[in-house]
């Protein structure tokens, strides 16, 4: 399995540490305000966990050490792109990096966020 790190390009999956599904943004800490329980429950624990295209956090631990969000299919393991995690939840995020095959439509279509 090869992962297209937006910073380093296509790298073998052994260089990465997966963290799980990126389905909800991390809630704001909110200073001294009472934490938003349901938002944290949603972020930390609850998942749609689809058997389909999805988004997962990976850490490029043996590479540039960036946190990225990889677009993968959980039935075929096909990787269709990746985004820097810092950009993933932004409304105007930059385009997804595709896989090696420049003609692959996947890179463009990797539907972003939720």
């Amino acid at each position: 399995m090869l992962i297209p790190c937006p910073h380093c390009g296509l790298r073998p999956s052994e260089e990465f540490v997966p963290k799980g599904l990126a389905e909800a943004p991390r809630p704001a800490l909110g200073g001294r305000a009472k934490p938003d329980g349901p938002a944290w429950q949603n972020y930390l624990h609850l998942r749609d966990n689809v058997a389909d295209h999805n988004h997962e956090y990976f850490h490029h631990a043996l590479g540039c050490r960036s946190w990225i969000v990889v677009h993968r299919h959980t039935l075929t393991h096909e990787v269709t792109g990746a985004t820097m995690a810092a950009d993933f939840w932004k409304a105007d995020k930059p385009a997804t990096t595709g896989t090696q095959d420049a003609k692959s439509p996947a890179a463009e279509t990797a539907e972003d966020g939720q």
Binding site: M1, N49, N54
Partner: peptide, 13 residues
């Protein structure tokens, strides 16, 4: 293996 999967197979690493 560590990544999310519904495939009943894993990878070589």
């Amino acid at each position: 293996d560590g990544y999310n999967s519904y495939a009943q197979r894993g990878n070589l690493p």
